[in-house]
Amino acid sequence: MSLPLWCLLITALLPFWLAFWSSSVRRREFGHLDNHHPRQQYAQMTGKGARLWAAQSNAWEALALFTAGIVAMQTSGGGGRLADIACVVFVLARIGHGLCYAMDLATLRSSLFVVSFLAVLSLFMTALL
């Protein structure tokens, strides 16, 4: 499997990692997990739990754009070293983004969002070249 596809796999797993992390925070905050109405319980969370829930939602959104970039790059025959670098930068920025959400580092989180967005644009550029 190519490096971009490994990066896609890691990116696809990030929302699940954030979900498990937010579930552990949810259990600590409420004393139990409401598996009958989990979204209602998540909506009541505050602080770190609420930020992790938001990070998970954002990770799903980022996955869609990254997937489109990978598909565009792969189907156009593009790629190479620039695509590999863009993919690794994207994954590292998205991991950092989730961590910054949890630690309430809003400015750094926003900066990492921009870095990951530029990495995806780079993938689309490799598809055009």
Score class of each variant (00 low, 15 high):
residue 31 G to C: 06
residue 59 A to Q: 02
residue 85 I to M: 10
residue 54 A to F: 11
residue 41 Q to A: 09
residue 74 Q to I: 09
residue 104 D to C: 10
residue 115 V to H: 12
residue 18 L to T: 10
residue 42 Y to C: 05
residue 119 A to W: 01
residue 76 S to D: 03
residue 124 F to K: 00
residue 106 A to Y: 10
residue 102 A to W: 00
residue 89 V to R: 03
residue 127 A to D: 03
residue 77 G to T: 07
residue 30 F to I: 02
residue 24 S to L: 14
residue 70 I to S: 01
residue 125 M to H: 12
residue 40 Q to Y: 07
residue 100 C to Q: 10
residue 104 D to L: 07
residue 49 G to Q: 01
residue 61 E to M: 13
residue 30 F to A: 04
residue 109 R to I: 12
residue 118 L to A: 09
residue 97 H to N: 08
residue 12 A to V: 08
residue 32 H to I: 12
residue 92 L to Q: 02
residue 36 H to R: 15
residue 38 P to I: 00
residue 65 L to C: 08
residue 34 D to I: 04
residue 127 A to H: 02
residue 65 L to K: 09
residue 108 L to M: 13
residue 34 D to N: 10
residue 79 G to Q: 02
residue 22 S to Q: 15
residue 81 R to M: 13
residue 86 A to V: 05
residue 89 V to Y: 03
residue 39 R to L: 15
residue 116 S to V: 06
residue 51 R to Y: 05
residue 31 G to M: 09
residue 38 P to D: 03
residue 27 R to A: 14
residue 78 G to C: 08
residue 89 V to G: 04
residue 73 M to L: 09
residue 29 E to C: 08
residue 65 L to V: 14
residue 45 M to T: 14
residue 72 A to D: 14
residue 38 P to G: 00
residue 13 L to F: 15
residue 94 R to C: 03
residue 116 S to L: 06
residue 68 A to D: 02
residue 51 R to M: 02
residue 75 T to N: 10
residue 75 T to P: 00
residue 107 T to L: 15
residue 112 L to Q: 03
residue 2 S to V: 02
residue 62 A to Y: 01
residue 95 I to C: 06
residue 125 M to Q: 12
residue 97 H to C: 08
residue 108 L to C: 06
residue 16 F to K: 06
residue 120 V to P: 00
residue 45 M to A: 10
residue 38 P to Q: 01
residue 3 L to D: 12
residue 73 M to Q: 08
residue 84 D to K: 11
residue 100 C to L: 13
residue 124 F to Q: 01
residue 70 I to F: 06
residue 106 A to C: 07
residue 106 A to P: 00
